[in-house]
Every structure is written in C-alpha cells, then in structure tokens.
Amino acid sequence: MYAREGLLVLAATAALTAFAMLDGEPPRPGLPLLAGAGLAAALPLTLRARFPLTGALLSAAIALLGLVIPGWQGRLVTMVMFGAAAFRLPRRAWLVMSLSIGWTAGYGLLIPRSHAGLSVVTDLVIMGVAPVAVGHALRLHGERAAQAARLDHAEARRAIAEERAALARDVHDSVGHHLTAIRMQATATRRALRGRAPVADRALGTIAELSATALDEVRALLDSLRETPTGPDLEEIENLAKRLSTPRLPISVHRAGRSTPLPPAVGHTVYRVVQEALTNAARHSGASHVEVHVLCDRTAVTVSIADNGHGRAGAEGRGIRGMRERVDQHGGTLMAGPREDHGWRVEAVVPIGQGPGITASRGQPSSMAQDPT
C-alpha cells in the first residue's frame, strides 16, 4: 500500500515537473524548484481516501501559492482531489461543488493575465464543475453496480431456497407417504397373523422397523432442506434492509408490538415477503426511500413495505404471486398496489395461530387432513 502511494506521488511529481518545463516561458525556473513544488502539490494525493476534502483544500492552497512559478500546473492535482472528494463524500456533493467553484474563481482572479490562457467561464466549467461531476458520477455508477450485485446474490439465494423447498415437498409427498404405508401394512399384517407364522412375523417386524428408521431419516433430511429459520427473523429483516440500503435508496425498518419469538414458519414467511418487496422496490420503483413496518400482536403479524416511487401498473407478476402463495398457506391476506398519493405498497397479514396447509385442508375429511409424516 505504501509503495503504491509512493509511486503515485512520484508519478504526479514527475508529470508536474515535465509540464512546467514544457509550458514555462524562458527564463524557466530551476529544476530543483519545480521538483520541490511538484512534490508539495502531489503529497495531498495520499489523503484522497481517508480525508479527501481536507486533501482537496490543502492542494488548493498549494496551487494558489504555486502561481508565482511560471507555467506550473499544480491545479491539475487540485482538480483530481476535488473529484476524489465528490466520490468519497456523496452526501456532501454540494459542499464539494461550492468549494471547488470558489477555489476556481479565486484562482482565476489571482492568475497573472499573461498566463491566463483560458477564460473565467471555461475555467469554472473545466476546473470547478467537471471534476466534481465526474467524481459523483463514478460514485453513483459504483453504487448501482454494488446494489445490482447484492440483488443478484439475493435472487440466487431465493432461487436456491425455493428449489430446496420444492424438493422437500416432493420427498414429503412421495417417499414419506410410501414409507408410512409400508409401515402401516406391515404392522397390520403382523396383527392379523397374531404370531401364527414366527418367520413371517419376524420379517414383518424387520420391515416395520426399517421403514420407521427410513421415515425418521427422511424427516431429518426435510428439516435441512426446508431452511426453517430458528427465530422470528425480525433481526434478519433489519440486516436485509442494511444490505440493500444505499445513499440513493435508504431503507428504514420500524417494529412494534410483542417481542416474543414467532413460530419459525411465520417468521420465515414474513421475511420472504419483505425480501421480495424490497427487491422489487430497488429494481423497479425509482424511489428515494422505502419504509418497512412490522407489527406483531397475539393473533397475527402485519408487515407493510411502502416506497415513494412511481406506481408499477400491469398484471400481477411472479414475485407478487409467490408472496401471495406464501401468505395464503397461513390463511393470511396480501395486498399489493399503488398508494393513494404516489408510490407502491405491499401489505401482508400473516396469522400466528395457523400453520401452512391448514387452509388447504378445510372442508376435507379428518383422515385426509392428517399428515402421517
């Protein structure tokens, strides 16, 4: 790191010295003076990461002092430093812009007329505005790229989770059912024989025992595939908001109500609804702020995700359908649509007392509603 910073300072010093030798009019200043001035102007570059604005102001002062040297271009380093300040301090962009323009105006007033070269307006645009604009644009580009990477990572994790859940359902519906049927048939046959055939009784007992062991192993596999969270996931919602927040799209989370742990399935559903809604807001809303409200009471969890962007009209997409299916499994409700003033809102009510599959079993005979696995 120190070697890289040293090479940067040496390169800037050499460039400033060469520019002064080429642009300066006879009689040219001595080489030691030019090299010393170039080194003084290049040293603030080492502050561009930790103290960018301080480095920019220090470089501006050195550039003004360097006006006494004919042909010296120390202001080039100052332009770079103000661009770095705009990149590192996105929330102070207007302050950086004001200081840059103020320094440029002072430089234009103090520069000798014989060395002015450019008009005041041109200097204001090139030296004052352009570096700050470029630095801020690079910052926005980096934020968009980082946010896109985080969203892609979240999408990949969600796709993996959904694939694992689908696999768990398939195993549950097929293998679990058949193992249970084998065990029940073996047990019923043993009871019918009532020990009259000892060899068959032992074989049937072995079949019942093996099927029970296999069923336990399948259940353990399903628990690992279903990715069931161990807590209410409210802390995970805050971590998710922190990961997706940017200076251009801050996300705030507000919690109210009881603080006791939620059933794992309920917390998992709430988390997935918030994840999908925040992903949609970051990708499509064009909003400048998103608010997440989570209210927990004795009977249900109500979660609301609202942004101040433009409403997203059109047919219900796969993301909303997925959220609705998750909430429907608990007998809850989900609403997604434009807000009255502007923006988009997703609101879900997930009952705590009901688990997945209860609504699907309503109106069915009790033997059909029971799950043997």
Rank of each mutant, 00 (worst) to 15 (best):
A3N: 09
E5S: 12
L10N: 05
A20T: 07
G24I: 02
G24C: 00
L34T: 07
A40E: 04
A40I: 04
A42G: 12
L45K: 09
T46A: 15
T46E: 09
A56Y: 03
L57H: 07
L58M: 06
L64K: 07
L65D: 07
L67E: 01
F82R: 02
A85K: 01
A85I: 00
W94M: 02
M97V: 03
S98C: 13
I111P: 05
R113K: 11
V132Y: 00
A133C: 08
R139N: 08
R139K: 05
R139I: 00
H141E: 02
H141Y: 06
E143F: 02
A159Q: 12
R169L: 15
S174H: 15
H177E: 11
H178A: 07
R183P: 07
R190I: 01
R191E: 08
A197S: 13
A200K: 02
D201P: 01
T206E: 14
A212T: 14
P229F: 11
D233I: 08
R243V: 09
R243E: 14
P247H: 08
T260P: 04
H268E: 06
V273C: 03
A277Q: 04
R283W: 08
G286Q: 02
S288K: 10
H293C: 04
C296I: 08
D297I: 00
D307K: 00
G314K: 06
G319K: 04
E325K: 13
R326F: 09
H330N: 10
G331I: 08
T333Q: 14
M335C: 12
A336L: 12
H342D: 10
A348W: 09
V350E: 14
P351A: 00
P351G: 03
G357C: 00
S367V: 10
M368L: 15
D371W: 12
T373M: 14
